[in-house]
Design a protein around this nucleic acid. Structure first.
Lengths: 253, 253
DNA sequence: GACTTTTAAATGTCAGACAAATGATTTCTG
DNA sequence: CAGAAATCATTTGTCTGACATTTAAAAGTC
């Protein structure tokens, strides 16, 4: 575990990388305690604040956690699925919002991933997952629901579908895609008819999953994909025309 | 953008969160410059090292980048797909290695995601993607290839398949799953016969993608899934029996 | 033996300083 | 006046040293 003081890279970056490499290589096991900041500073021949900046970088990625006190120190963290979820959601959200990913692209990705889960979910879903799906469908049918609440329920429904596959890796991968799409989905205004159609398709999906009929589930999901894309296209067109009007007004001043 | 000095949370964590929230809320746009460290320290009523630790946390997530010099400072980063890739690969790798995800689970997730891409790839793949796939298949048939090189080529092949779908969100999601599985795949020792079979299936996949036949691609992928699972099961069993033998030896001392 | 107090070790925070990089400004030169 | 060179100011990167806070373990007390 060494660093090059003559490198152009910042020392704290190099130190963080060195420790990270040790963790990935398995030289530092989960739960193991790193040397104290003072010892690390001594080892790398840098000051304690520099070591601290390196440790903070690692802490930001949930790679280590710090404890104060007598037997405190920095410990190698067991990266939990939950930590990974939340990191992925943050990353995906920023990625979508900063890179102007089109609604179509995000939507396509989301449903492609969900359709990958559906056959597994049809095979393995527990009564719990089915109950969650049915409950969310019921909620979605309630009048007076805001668009945001409708979207949130939609996410919960699809989350149950994905979790039904019983594969934590898939759940983890999809959490990012689905949750990150919510801001985009929130741009859509759902009419009563839209909701009716969506609830109907959700019902078909739940039925198919209940009957362990993966083909029917895939069919319903593909219809839902097409319908969501249609709604998205309309919403984007409406936004565009509003912008167009506004510029026209501004130009005519 | 405020913090609570009486909170139990560390100040640098609170400051990092406050800035992160501002970025996500869009109060700070991409490319915008944050106040200097001294100004931030003044604003939050903390010392500069504390502000710096907060900024390092954000830099670790590629949310900001720092520049030295007269018109330097911290700038809100446009999170690139590449940054997101590499973060996801690190996270996925650690998740798999630290949580004892079974080979079966990881394998299932990987191929489920790939099968989600295959229809899109069949529709949209460019000659470039096909050429990459063919080249990797050729490489995989070369004698004397190490298991690691074979695995790496396998990853490149599947990467081309995924990229063929022309959906950067899907590519990003899958990069993590596929690359993170490489350490697990490296546990497998491929016999000449194994490789022959895999190359054959890869050929079938490439053919199907070339002919835009998504059904055939799905079929070949499902066979490849089953075959990989079989190989994995064998490899794990072999490992387990080696461990068993070792314990027996140790117990009989 | 159970409870309280002390202590030592570690991280968290602060203050001030200097080094290094870098763009802007000024000065010098032709 | 134009362009090149030198200088300057600003900002991050790093260092030194110190104190505050937390925490577990050791020591002391009843």
């Amino acid at each position: 575990m060494k660093i090059d003081p003559n490198s152009s890279a910042d020392l704290s970056v190099q130190i963080a990388q060195a420790i990270k490499d040790s963790i990935i290589a398995g030289e530092l096991d989960v739960g193991e305690r790193l040397p104290s900041e003072a010892e690390l500073a001594d080892h790398f021949q840098v000051s304690r604040p520099t070591v601290r900046e390196a440790l903070k970088r690692l802490a930001a990625q949930s790679l280590i956690r710090s404890q104060r006190g007598a037997s405190g120190g920095a410990f190698v963290n067991r990266l939990s699925f939950e930590d990974a979820y939340s990191q992925q959601i943050t990353t995906s959200t920023l990625l979508l919002s900063m890179n102007a990913v089109s609604f179509d692209t995000a939507c396509e990705a989301r449903y492609a991933l969900e359709r990958a889960c559906a056959p597994l979910s049809a095979e393995r879903r527990s009564p719990d997952h089915l109950a969650t799906m049915r409950a969310e469908i019921f909620r979605q049918g309630q009048p007076g629901l805001t668009d945001e609440a409708f979207c949130a329920s939609d996410v919960a429904f699809h989350r149950a579908l994905v979790d039904g596959a019983g594969n934590p890796v898939l759940s983890y991968q999809l959490a990012g895609a689905v949750e990150a799409m919510q801001p985009l989905m929130n741009m859509i205004t759902f009419t009563a008819r839209d909701r009716e159609r969506i609830v109907e398709l959700h019902g078909q999906i739940a039925d198919a999953i209940e009957q362990r009929n993966s083909q029917a589930a895939d069919l319903a999901l593909s219809e839902l994909t097409a319908y969501t894309l249609e709604l998205g296209t309309k919403a984007m067109a409406a936004r565009a025309s509003r912008h167009q009007n506004r510029s026209n007004v501004e130009n005519s001043k």
